[in-house]
Amino acid sequence: MNFVVPKEKYLNRIPVISFGKEKKVFIGGENALPFLKFEGEFPHKPIIAYEIQDSPPEDYPEELAKIYSSFWHDPVEWAKFCIEQGAEAICLRLMSSHPDSQNTSAEEVAETVKKIISSVQIPLIILGSNHIEKDSLILPVVSEVARGYNCIIGKAQEANYRTIAASAMAGGHNLIAMSELDVNLAKQLNILISQTGFPKEKIIIDPMCSALGYGFEYTYSVMERIRIAALMQGDDILCCPMIADVGFYVWKTKETQASYEEIPSWGNLYERAIMWEAVTACSFLMSGAELLIMRHPKAIEIVKNFINDLI
């Protein structure tokens, strides 16, 4: 008798989500666990979105400042730079809206969004500052301004999903549903969002990201459980693409900031910082993320090569 490769039977297929207007990208569509090509189909590769911010970042460490600081006062310039680097998508984080930052108004950040969508044609993720109340004020206005541009809006959380989901639906956008490192809460939030009438097939799950060495394995494990529930337990509610907001968490760690002089045993900062982001990102691809938000072009290049090697 010939050897037959044992194959797992899966009960579901992750829905395909497309975002962008003239230029579109697609994620999802697979019906097997990550990269197990012999068991299922993977019609779309994971996508990496370059992160930009609406005002000069207050917390970007040296290695990022070197690349972006000469134009980061202008988000349009910043976006154009990312496109020149080969970005397939951009993630605009409206950080200035945070009350502890500049506390900019919904109208002010909406102006920035308008400028970007009128200047560059690229699939766009638009995020608030992760401030529950403020996000629920700015994201509805932003969704309206970007109506018809088929963006990904985020992040809706249990405390503010109603207004954000309603406005994302009105604007025809996809939605990121973020819960805090708990598979049951992720499911609950998806139920609640679906109950508002928001289409389930336009939800992207963010189980809350973390960086290598800083809770990384919690995120990894929650993602894994979500994907296993969706594909192997037939859980339709959790059957959604997942996003990993990698750069935001990685570039806060000491490993991306401490100089060689400070800690010689850690080696060269540039290599270390880039690898910290790349390794974190690659690992989340293994646990099921289809969409990554990243910051350093070199790290992005490494992860892209990794994806191309595997798919």
Partner: peptide, 8 residues
Amino acid sequence: GNTLYAHS
């Protein structure tokens, strides 16, 4: 354990 728990 056949269905994943969620409050709803």
